[in-house]
Simulated scan of single mutants.
Amino acid sequence: MRFHTRKWVKPEDLNPNGSLFGGKLLAWIDEELALYTIIQLENSRIVTKHMSEINFRSSARQGDIIEIGIDVVRFGKTSLTLICEARNMMTRETIITIESTTMVNLGPDGKPKAHGKTEIEYVKDRLED
């Protein structure tokens, strides 16, 4: 799994128990999955269609740094299916795992559109030497 982004847990990210609010973490993950998919499919019209069971395994506190990892599971005709893990870099514990998230590629009309991709592409490979 490749870890692409880090988030710093700030006071506004906490729940009444003083730990990271799960909804905030899910928003960070959803945004990261969307950005990853936009880059992979080279289209800014992306929506989250489905997220499988979400397993909260540990928490984080103010000042902790959260790392979000993503891997592609499958390329569909109009979608990309991903797995995700968020971990606490301070404690090295996994905070959350999401076994499957489906992101859908949309056309200008807002309907699913075939993307023609079959494998992960890295930005460096798209650039000419």
Rank of each mutant, 00 (worst) to 15 (best):
S79A: 01
L26V: 03
E67R: 03
E32P: 01
S79Q: 05
N105K: 13
K7E: 08
V73M: 14
K77N: 15
I66N: 02
S44H: 11
S59F: 09
L82F: 13
V9P: 00
D129A: 08
T81F: 08
E53P: 03
I39N: 14
T78H: 00
L25T: 06
V73P: 05
G116L: 02
E12N: 13
H50V: 00
I29W: 00
K113I: 02
D64A: 06
L82Q: 13
S79L: 08
G116H: 00
R126L: 15
L25P: 00
E12Y: 06
N88L: 13
D109L: 12
G76W: 10
I120C: 02
K49T: 02
K77I: 15
D30Q: 11
L127S: 14
E53M: 02
P108A: 14
Q62W: 02
K7W: 07
R87D: 08
P108D: 09
G22T: 00
D64F: 04
A27H: 04
F3G: 01
T97H: 11
L127G: 10
E31R: 07
R126E: 04
F21V: 00
E85R: 14
W28F: 11
R57E: 11
W28C: 02
G23W: 05
E99P: 11
F75W: 14
E32F: 01
T118W: 03
N88E: 15
E99D: 12
M103S: 05
M1G: 07
A34D: 07
R87S: 06
K24G: 04
E32R: 01
T37N: 07
W28A: 01
T91S: 15
C84N: 10
L33S: 11
K7Y: 09
N43V: 08
L26P: 06
N105P: 06
L82Y: 03
I66F: 03
Y36W: 00
I46M: 10
E93Y: 05
P112W: 12
E42N: 12
A86M: 06
I39C: 14
F21I: 01
D64I: 02
Y36Q: 00
P108Q: 06
K7G: 06
L82M: 07
S100M: 09
M1Q: 06
D71W: 07
A60N: 00
